[in-house]
């Protein structure tokens, strides 16, 4: 999978495009499919912040911070699971300016913080490193705004999470 993504990125970067060094930043909303102990993927809401800086012919670096939360509040126990993820990815985009295709890959850190409230209150935390990957469509809205549709994921130990987000923001 890593090799496939790398090859795809190199292929896309080799396609000539207009030189641009623009930046963009904004908010992201979507749905995360989070890998849990049972090997299931649980669907959860996701919100995030992102910033992108272009370089060269279609290259870009992107930083993201996103989070999910799930509260299971039963009569016997409350389980409050919070996730936060930070990632730095490098990628490329290509295609007509009206609708570009982008792919990116890079390292990610996921912080998990779970509070279990039963007869007492317990807390579990973990910091898990992995590989982040994203792919999707970038749609400019005029000269100053854009909205993107991106599929992505990140590995954690032997697990992986995925998500589908719509992100919007301003360009400069």
């Amino acid at each position: 999978m890593t090799r496939t993504l790398a090859c795809a990125a190199l292929l896309l970067m080799s396609i000539p495009g207009p030189a641009r060094a623009e930046g963009a930043a904004g908010l992201a909303f979507g749905a995360a499919a989070v890998h849990v102990a049972s090997a299931e993927h649980e669907l959860r809401p996701l919100v995030g912040l992102w910033g992108r800086l272009g370089f060269g012919r279609g290259g870009f670096a992107e930083v993201e911070a996103s989070g999910t939360r799930r509260i299971e509040d039963g009569g016997v126990v409350q389980v409050d699971e919070r996730w936060a993820r930070g990632a730095l990815t490098v990628g490329c985009r290509t295609g007509p300016r009206a609708l570009e295709v982008a792919v990116a890959v890079g390292p990610a850190l996921t912080y998990r913080d779970t509070v279990v409230v039963g007869e007492d209150r317990w807390r579990a935390t973990a910091l898990q490193a992995g590989v982040r990957y994203r792919a999707g469509l970038l749609l400019p809205l005029g000269r100053r705004w854009e909205v993107d549709l991106l599929f992505g994921g990140a590995s954690r130990r032997r697990n992986h999470d995925q998500e589908l987000v719509v992100q919007g923001g301003g360009r400069w």
Partner: peptide, 18 residues
Amino acid sequence: PAFQALPMLGLATSCGEP
């Protein structure tokens, strides 16, 4: 299980092992 089509990337490491 849904969303299990993608194989995991093999470069993951772990911090904070229990």
